[in-house]
Amino acid sequence: MLEKSKNITTANLDYLTRLTPARLAVGRAGSRPRFDTWLSFRKDHALARDAVLGDLKASFIKEFVQTYDLLVVESQAGDRKNFVLNPPSGKRLKDSEVADLSAKLGQTSPDVQIVMSDGLSALALEENLPDLYPMLLDGFRQEGITMGRSVIALQGRVAIADQIGYLSGAKIAINLIGERPGLSTAKSLSAYITYNPSPSTISSDRTVVSNIHQEGTPPVEAGAFIVRTVKRILDLKVSGVRLQALS
């Protein structure tokens, strides 16, 4: 075999830049970035900011709620500004909502309680849910896994699903939540899956399937994968770090 070249050449750089969407070898103009580099950075940064600051579109909520008979709740944050400035407020439901939601969900103790939260990218929900959610519905039905009525939680963070799952008495809570945007994508979604969810759930109890978007794991494929993961969690009765320890 030939010895691999050790020096970085333009050709090698071309290879390196193909490996990652990060801004490698973008050049410079004097002491400043090149104009096109600067513009593309500004554009991606603006998209990331919009994703964090933007609310879930009313039209999207309306259509999705109608199609799939969902419930909509709000976290204690109240609005986007407070959610961003006061992050812990997104972890819990508004006090006034708890009793009402509890009644609507009923203590049905389903296998799975799905929550969809805007998190740090409402855009991620709008982009990925239309392909991901029906895959989950199909898959759970096929596997005989029962579902509670799904909930959209506005201004929600990861932990809000554990509280909602606890209210419905579900064995598993799934939070489909918009990820913190980066400069390569603002549309990425994660699924946090907890066995035996409760307000005392901690991060290590959650199994995560991340990077769900068209350029990462496509939402349809992620849907099928989440179904299998949920099945495994139901079988083994454990999620998070301890699930990994079992494999």
């Binding site: 199909d138 898959g139 096929q142 496509p218 494929e221 849907g223 099928a224 179904v227």
Partner: peptide
């Protein structure tokens, strides 16, 4: 990357 999702739908 869609083999698992296609499989799930076909299975049904």
């Amino acid at each position: 990357d869609i083999a698992m999702s296609l499989s799930q739908i076909l299975k049904g």
